[in-house]
């Protein structure tokens, strides 16, 4: 399985990847990107099975990335993992085609539960 983790914070990418391993995805190939634009380019070239993405990022935000992906007909499973979470953001995320929006901080159990929806 190939998972793309997109976050402008290297520390947060490390935490998401740590949680992926704890959730049983230790064998997955994990790719990283530090903004939505690089995330989009990586998604096009690497065809990941799952994208875990932050919301606020430079160059291209997470929601812009998701909309661009879906506009290209790419239906890759996509989940937001973000420090900022409002009901409006959740609605926007789901309307744009995300499977979930998981707010930081999250427990390993939360992470497993959300990933079970898509992987």
């Amino acid at each position: 399985m190939k998972i793309l983790v997109v976050d402008d914070s290297k520390a947060m990418r490390m935490i998401v990847i740590r949680n992926l391993r704890q959730a049983g995805f230790g064998d997955a190939t994990v790719l990283e990107a530090d903004n939505g634009l690089i995330g989009l380019e990586t998604a096009r070239s690497e065809a990941p099975d799952l994208i875990l993405c932050d919301w606020n990022m430079p160059e291209m935000s997470g929601i812009e990335f998701l909309k661009a992906l879906r506009a290209e007909g790419d239906e890759t499973a996509f989940g937001f993992v973000t420090s900022e979470s409002t009901p409006a953001m959740r609605d926007q995320a789901i309307d744009a085609g995300a499977a979930f929006l998981l707010a930081k901080p999250f427990s390993a159990e939360d992470f497993q539960r959300f990933l079970a929806k898509v992987a």
Binding site: S9, A11, M12, S83, E84, S85, T86, P87, A103, P105
Partner: peptide
Amino acid sequence: LDNYKEVVNILCSVLNTPNTPHLR
């Protein structure tokens, strides 16, 4: 400091409730 910025960024989640203005 960069790492701790991430900590206090996420710490904002304990200040936000459905009935109070959203802080960031």
